[in-house]
Amino acid sequence: MEFLTTFVNGLSLGGIYAMIALGYTMVYGIAKMLNFAHGDIIMVGGYTILLFLFVNPIVAIIAAMVFCMILGIVVEKVAYKPLRGASPLAVLITAIGVSYLLQSLAQMIFGSAPKYIVIADLGILKIGSLSIGYNTIITLVCSILVMVALSLFVKFSKTGRAMVAVSEDKGAAQLMGINVNRIIMITFAIGSALAALASVFFLLKAPTMTPTFGSLPGIKAFTAAVIGGIGSIPGAMIGGILLGVIECFAQAVPAISPYTDAIEFSILIILLLVKPSGLLGKVRREKV
């Protein structure tokens, strides 16, 4: 029974990681950049919820998603777009800069002490000796819905197919009449909305928020994206869920629980040694 509980918790946490990893992987696939400020969007989402929670939780969640979408678009326009065509290192450093900027702004506005943000107290589901928080179940169900919806969007919508086309060949995509800048903007918007949604589920798990909250989940989700094969949407989902399950099982064993993070990152290192392109990543053929 304990095994099952841990497994469900792992899937649920993995769902959150997958949601964040999707933002990383889609932005990487389409804009060919690592958006290291992506984790901090989670934190911004959390504080936005705090600001709007007095209305009601649903409004607060929607407000957080909308605000993060806009923030994602603005960050892309102001910080990343001028660097298109610049060296990847310049873009990477800019992204780290944006990350610190968001953290510092949050600290100025909300202070560095943790804020308690209780969206809802959902209680615990008990079936026999099995006890699982309702938040866990909601997270799991929602993350599955999000992943299915996103997959359908990418496969069947005109914009989704354009995203695949842009991630594969920007020049050829332009020659089809695709506005690459618009597709990049949409990608940032989707990724940021997913990050805001992730903050909802983190807050349901543990209702505290700090300005640096986004760093660790950001890095974990990045790890998940790399494990799955960065640029691959199903890869991010698999990587995220895998990482969540591993994390929960590691935490459930007292002897190794202090080393949970180390275990996760070691798995990344080992996997990259065996399969450098990640589980579902394609070996990039460099064209001359």
Partner: peptide, 18 residues
């Protein structure tokens, strides 16, 4: 420069994007 990860049909639809 056809889109390798899209099907033939999807590639043709990309041609009609505009």
């Amino acid at each position: 420069r056809v889109f390798q990860n899209l099907t033939v049909y999807e590639n043709l639809l990309m041609g009609a994007y505009s």
